[in-house]
Every structure is written in structure tokens, then in C-alpha cells.
Design a binder for these strands. Sequence first.
RNA 1: GCGGGAAUGGCGGAAUGGUAGACGCGAUGGUCUCAAACACCAUUGGCUUUACGGUCGUGCGAGUUCGAGUCUCGCUUCCCGCACCA
Length: 1044
Amino acid sequence: MEYNPSEIEPKWRKWWQENGTYQVNNHSEKPKYYILDMFPYPSGAGLHVGHPLGYIASDIMARYKRLKGFNVLHPMGYDSFGLPAEQYAIQTGIHPEVATEQNITRYREQLENIGFSFDWSREVRTSSPEYYRWTQWIFMQLFGHYFDKKAEKALPIAQLEQYFAQNGNAGIQAACDDDTPAFSAAEWNAMSQTEQQQMLLKYRLTFPSEEFVNWCPGLGSVLSNDEVKDGVSERGGYPVERVLMKQWVMRITAYADRLIDGLDTVDWPDPIKDQQRNWIGRSKGASVKFGVDGYPDYHIEVFTTRVDTIYGVSFMVLAPEHELVRELTTDAQRSEIDAYVRWAASRSELERMSEVKKVTGAFTGAYAINPFNGERVPIWIADYVLAGYGTGAVMAVPSGDQRDWNFARHFNLPIIPILDAQQNMEEAADPTKEGRYINSGMINGMDYETAVPTLIEWLEKKGLGKGKTQYKLRNAVFSRQRYWGEPVPVYWDSNNIPHLIDEADLPLTLPKVDKYLPTETGEPPLGRAKDWYYKPKDGSEGGPLEMNTMPGWAGSSWYFYRYMDPKNGEAFCSPEAINYWQDVDLYIGGSEHAVGHLLYSRFWNHFLFDTGLAPKKEFAKKLINQGMIQGRSSFVYRAKERFFEEYLMLKVLKPFFNEQGPFEVHAPDFEEAWQYDFAFGASDLVIEVTSYKLIDKIEQIRAAAESDQKRLLVLSVEELADNINRPDRIAEKISDALKSKEKFIMSRETPKSEQLFVSFNLVHKYNPENLTRLHVDISYVNNDFLDTEKVRQLSMFKNAAFKLDADGKFLTCPEVEKMSKSKYNVVNPDDMVAQYGADCFRMYEMFLGPIEVSKPWNTNGITGVSGFLRKFWSLFFDNAGQWKVVDGEPSADELRVLHTCIKKVTEDIERFSMNTCVSHFMIATNELRDLKCSKRAVLEAMLALMAPFAPHVSEELWHLLGHTSSVCDAQWPVLNETYLKTDSINYPIQINGKLRAHVDLPSGCTDEEAIAAALAVEQVKKWLDGQTPKKVIHVKGRMINIVV
RNA sequence: GCGGGAAUGGCGGAAUGGUAGACGCGAUGGUCUCAAACACCAUUGGCUUUACGGUCGUGCGAGUUCGAGUCUCGCUUCCCGCACCA
């Protein structure tokens, strides 16, 4: 039998499905292992070879853990709400649900094709009502809770109401809006129902709020920052304005500390943790109020992380937009300040970014007073201070902060050293915290650790400031003005207070709409729905339903629990299921989700934990980032008409120079002066290069030549393209024309070619301006060489001529780019599977390199893996296709090869080094082949090792060995170290760390024996040259180093 | 500007501080074949040498060490993330 993946692979996929091989039970004696891939969005473009990279790695892990005796949960589903389907719906009128369904079908086919061990009976889709009713339900829980800072957890809002009724809000420590007023119990009890509800919104974990958004009236939607370029939308170029809009917001800031601290408890890559810490941006410092000279009522509040540098403040800087700028500016400075403010407002973000080194600013004429020493310091404005961040004011300490230093240098402001350890103050700021304070009043002589609390205590006593922890993190906007998302289960009463709908009325399903666009009045698409109104069953007052939908991250923030119990209609997940599976043991996905999905889902999970719904604070123990697979595009160079003039000059006309004397050349800059492309000085012949199609142009030139009394030779570019590899033919033609007496010479043959493409390795010979660079579909390219015959299928190349290189080949120019349809560099996994088989595809993706590294897709090496699989097969079948596996005791060598492979593969899977696993399989296969090993005991163990990587071929051979159950339920082979030992070891001998000789020694030899043997080696004696070694190092089983 | 990561043959990449370049691709030579493909065998970092060998070599420059691709410090370039974040 021959190895034929296209036959065996579908057979086993069918068998696995019929036998329910991948179905997982929520009850088991075995330990659980939950391995999860990040949720894909089913896009219309289908899967490309980059997507499965992580899925293959997780599938290998899942199969490996199963062989090791775990009950493994490895599910797959779809994050199926999303913008692309909605945009498609706007264009075509097709309901997003229909398009999404089609896309999912296609994804499923493609995924199935690769032989994953997903339990498809657990598939979930965020856009199905059975799923999103629970997303809505979790939203309702968030609405019903507040965050208690004393308990450090979410508590029911009813408890808060009770507390307010008894105590007012004094003494409560809860996360709430900044503008929450203080009120007593009496005041609370005197409030109307509406007023109380209004107040409670300031505490709820999700609440409506007025937020600034980038509103684009032209598109009828809100845009993200990066969709806005220079104040207009990137798509369409419509104006964008910052407007306040009522949005649902999640109070994620309440969890800022827990989200930072929780990072220390999970095994995630440090770059991801760093990004999250950075995003949350916890900085401990102090807020300090500076007085303003002559304005006793005004204060300028600043936040600083280096309050210890306060005596080094030599000026203040306000943002140009700061509210006090107008009032503080003196008349003398007014014109300068006004001009600067106007200039700053005119500057785009881009300009500000690119000119960080340019120092600009203006003096207001006013002075601030340092609360510590009463010193007057000038108040400046500069655009490096942002109005929207912090207080919009900075205390400038030029000795410790480089940007302040630059500013001080530029405007000649004092630079005051404050620590005795600060150095090179003349060249740059020194932000050190080392040493003792100088010039620093009450903290003189102290170190950093004692100075900070001293200063903060003083500030707080005087009421001029306080120690403060500041976060960069903002509350997360949870509303989208879209159709294709989860409806928010909320209605608004006549007093404009939001209320949850009754839990029994979940799911609140998406209504039908006539169009997927905003209404004429600017309301979201749900505003088009009829009867989008809620009437409670208890007969109380109802109201219109919320028209915003939830964002994409809503459904993906808790999906890992739904897989545990996907069909449950009573709960988002049964307590039994969640207590069995607990949390995700291994999560694999791209690092682009570092702060979006991964932070929001941690937030939701902390909340679910607080309410007792989830058993663990962190939902994923270990996270692995998979690298991106980039595309490898191929470019070809197409000649523009001017290329042929250049070509003629370089290749053809040079010899005529000697015979005919200098000729004159049409130069682009003198188009008016020169009528012809080439003119021979000593002859009356002129040459015109043009397309034969341009009859009018040829006639004009001909008339001009006649009136100039010149003879005209017309060379068509098509003809030149045809003869591009035969310049001699063109030369002959010119030569004939020179000898001829004819007035007008033009080829009568119909040229074949329309366009000329130049091989990449010849491109350097020509002016790049004469060539156009174009993508060519990579399916016509092999090892960067273009298949010049096959490519004629494309209309663009139908009549093309190719300028080939010296070897007669046409080279394309490769470039690594994002994999995308428009770049013609997409590789579809289906094609790879059809050509090489799923097992080969899986192993090759792993073989490409470490899982976490991004790399371009390149099939150049796939034949190596394909060849390996055939070699592996040939351990079981001889050349004639006869089964050759025999029983019998394996030899010591055979066992050594097998157990080396067991050791390496086990170690490498555990550390996710899948690429080296494939190498080990290749090595073992080559060695077993050399040993002519076909022993059942060895091959059976090899199959178990191979099964996670190449499940189809392993299953086939496993059954041919006589098994009736799946190879998935085999046992992972156990390593026996004794088989690894060899009798002798070939030791390298180094002299002074340089390899000089080798010696064979028995594997158990002592230091003395090894050293004596090493010194006796002829080569070593030569290098020692009679000297006694100073020192000899013997690393057992490794090497010997002799120091002379 | 800040933070993180990386840099090893023609290419993808190996290498618990211990023989740098495993494994694969590509290339070269050979066997098989009418021929091609497949397959198989051999060679394949640079320089040098008939050969044995010598010598240089993991982005650059120092350092620690008997020994550094690996550890430390300084630099260069590239990639990723964040971004006037005080």
C-alpha cells in the first residue's frame, strides 16, 4: 500500500465523527484540562494559512494531554457579531444573520479539513439568541451591583440603598462618579424615586453617561481614533466632530487595582502583562495645589509622581487650552499668548508627534507660588502639556525631567539641582532617586524613601494636596450605534431613568429593521424597529427600549464558560459544569488582543467571581501568544513605453555610435524642442518608438519628418517587446534602415505582444521610473520564479513578452506583507491540504519555527515534511507496498532511537517547541530506517508520539497494526532512561577553550581516567608542547578543557 | 519620546554557560532512467591548504568565565505595542 493522504484522511475524519471520538464529558475520573483558542470572527474571506497556526498547536496539546490521561476540553465557536457583516448588509440589504451563517459554514468546512479534535457539539455563536440572552443576563447583574472598596468586591445595589436610607453616603467607600455629592440619610429619604434612581446610577457597575465620541454625520456612525485622519473619516473623507453622546459605560476603573494585581497570579507572557499594566497605568504620586501670585482665589492643581522634586520646580507649564490661561495672562504678554494658543490649536496631532524635539511655548506673565517655599515661579504655556490629561498643568523640574530640561534650556530658565547624586546637569536632566536632597528645605539631607512621606504628610496637614494614586484607565464605553450586536436589556421611563427588563423576558431579540442604517434623526438602526417598546407584565409603566447595542467584546468576555455547558437554558453555565472545568488551563491566541479582549474578559470574570458565579478570579492560568503568519507577495515589473527608448540606447544603438557618429536623443525635459526619439547626427534617419496602435501619432511624426526632410523609422514597442531577448534583430533593422533609401520604414508584421515584463534581476539595469511594479498572484510563482506559460491564463499576461535573465528564467520580487486578497498573496489551507494532506500541512506549519514568532508563509520547505511522512510510512511498508511490520524484541539501538525520541518530544511539547518535535521525528525516522527497523513494539510507540501531530496517518497505521479503538486513546509512551545510555562517549577536548581533539571514553569513567586519557592524546601533547596544564576541567559526559 | 522583543549559513531555523549551524529547504556532484520526475547516496559557513590541518565566524564594542550565540554593561539596526500619560 502506498501513502495516499487524500484517501486515508477523509476516511478517518468520517470515522471520528461517526464514533464521537472527540466528544467530551463533563464527568470523569480523569483530571481535567481545558485548552482554548481565541474566538475567531467568521469573515467572508474564509480561513487563510495564518489562522490555523494557533489551532494546530492547541490541537497537538489537546491530543497530547488526552494521551497523557486527561479529560480534555478543546472547543471552538464563533464571535459572530461584528462590523463586516453589518457593512455587507448595508451594501446588499442581506440580513447579517444570513451572511454570518454562510461564513460560519465555510469556516467549519475549512476547520474540519485540517483534522482538529474539536468537540463540535459544544460550538457556540455569540449572535444566537440562546447565547446572547446570557450576555444580556450578565449585563443585568452588572447593573445590579456596585463596587465596595472596603470589601474590595462587587455587592448588590440593594445593600447600598439600605445603607443610604440609614446613613446617607458618608462613610461608604464605593466606586462612583467623580461628581457624586455627599448626602445624609434624611436627604436620601427625602429624595423622589427618580432622584434616588438617578443617584444610584452613579454607583452601578454599568451606567449611562455622557461621553465624548468621534461622531461622523456623513457615515452616521461613531469612529475609533484611528479611523479619523486629519479631522475627517478615513473611509469617505467625511468631517468628524467630537460630540457628547449618551453611552452605556462599564465601571472597569473600580477593578483597576485588582486587574493589575491579578497579573502576578497568572502565567502569561510578560509583554502582555506589561501592556495591561501600562494601559491601566497606575501611578502613585501626589496632587499639589500651587497658589497664583495676585489671585488669592485661584489654584493650579498638578499631579506629580515625583513630589520629592518639588523644591526643584523652576516654572509651571499649562496646556494652551487650560481654563486659567486667559485670566492669568498679563496685558504685556497677551498678544504673544493669544498667538501661541491659536498656533497650538491649528496644529494637527501628526505635526505635534513629528516635532517632539522642537521646543515651543509662551510666557503668561503670571507667577505661581510653590506651597513649600513660597517661591514665585513663572507660568508658561506649551503644547507638550495636554488639556485632556490629568489637570492640564505640570510642575516643571528641569534638573530631573528631560522635557522640562529642554524647555528650561531653550527659554533660559533656572535648573536647580535637588539631589547630590545628580550628574552632568549641563548636558541633560538626571532623573535619579539616589543620594540625599539639597536645596530642598524640609527634606534636605533625607533620601527618597523618607522624603516622599514627609512631604505628603505636610501637604495633607496643610490641606494643600494629598497622596494620590492615579490611573490612566478610563471606564469602558459599552454602547455601539449599530444593528448587529446584542440589544441592551433596558427600557427608559418617562423620567428618563433606565430600568432592566424582566429576566423572564430574556432574550431580548434583535428586531427586524428595513435598513441597517441610522434613522434620519440620527438614532441608531434599532430606532427603525417598530414596537421597540417594553411593557412589563406586572402592568407597571413601560417605556421605549434602548437603541444602542453592545460592543463586540461583550459576547467574547465570558464565552469560555458557555463551552462548558453550551445548551443550558436555565443558566449561563451550570454550577456542576463550572465547578468541574473551573478555568482555562491553556489559552492560545494573538497578542493583538492584549488590552482589548484580554483586559475586558478579566474584568467581567472578576465580577462573576465576586458574585459567586465563577470559581476563579482569573479565567486563564496560562497564555501563549501565537505569532502572525504574514503573506509573501510577488511583484513583477512592467515596462512603460519610455523603457524601450532606454533599452534601445543601452543595448542596440551603442555600436552605431562608432560607425555613424553621435546621435541625438529625445530628452523628456525638452519635449518641445525634440520631435523624434532618436536622430542620427551623420545621417538623415530618425527613429520613433511608439505603439503601433497609435496611428494618429505615427502619421503626425511622418508628416513632421517629411517637412524636416528626414527619413523615418518607426519601431513599435510591441515589436521591441517581442524581440527583447534578441537585440541583434533590432540592430539589423536599424542597420538596414540606415542603408536603405526609403523615406518611411515601419514593420508590416502584426506584433504579438502587448506588454513587456522584465525579470527582477535585470531591473537594476534600467531607470525605475520606466517600470511599473505590480502584484502577481503567487499561485503562478514557484521559488520566486514566474511560470511564464501558466500565467498567460490571466488576461493581463495573455500577450505579454518576458525579458528573461541569463538562465532563461523570470524572477519575481518577493516582499513580506499582511496576507490579504488585494495583495494576491493569500494561501488557502484547503489548497495545501489537497496537495499535501492535512497531516503534512499541520506538521509543516509547526516546522516553520517557534509558535510565538511572526513569520512569512513560505512553502519552500513543505516538500521536506511531505518526504518525511512518506519515509515514516515506509517503516511499515516496503517498496513493493507490502506490509513489513514484524514482532520481535527490539535491539538496543532501536530502543535507544525510540526513547531518545520519546524524551525529546515529551520535553519539547511541554515547552511548546513544536518545530523541534518535528525535527526529532525526522531524526528518529531516518535512524530507524538506517537500522532497517520494522519492529511492532517500536513503531507502535512511534505512532502514539506522532498521533497529536499527524492524527490521520497515525490512526490508519494504528488500525493496520490491529487496533480497533482510536489512536487518540492510546497511551503516551513512557521514557526509560536506561535505553539512552551508550557504552562510550566521544569527548571533545578543548585547549584553553578551543576545540582541538576528540577521544572516546567509556561512559562511566572517573575524572582521573578521563583527564589521563585526554592528556595521552597525540594532538593534545602537540598543543601542550611539554608544558604542564594549569588546570583541567572535566564535565561528565560533556567535554574536557585543558588550561595551559 | 516611552515600553517590550529580536539580530546565528543562500533561506526557515537548532543549540540546560560546555563540540555553533541539529532538522528541513535550496545548491553542487553522483546512482537509477531512453529521458524527465520521483527516489537514493555524497558534499555544502568564509578564507587558506594537494592533503592533514590552520584560521576567522552567531549585528557592533567592552566585560565576567577554564569556556559566552547564551550572562553583564554600552551601542547599531529592525519589528511590535503605547504615545506629548507628567
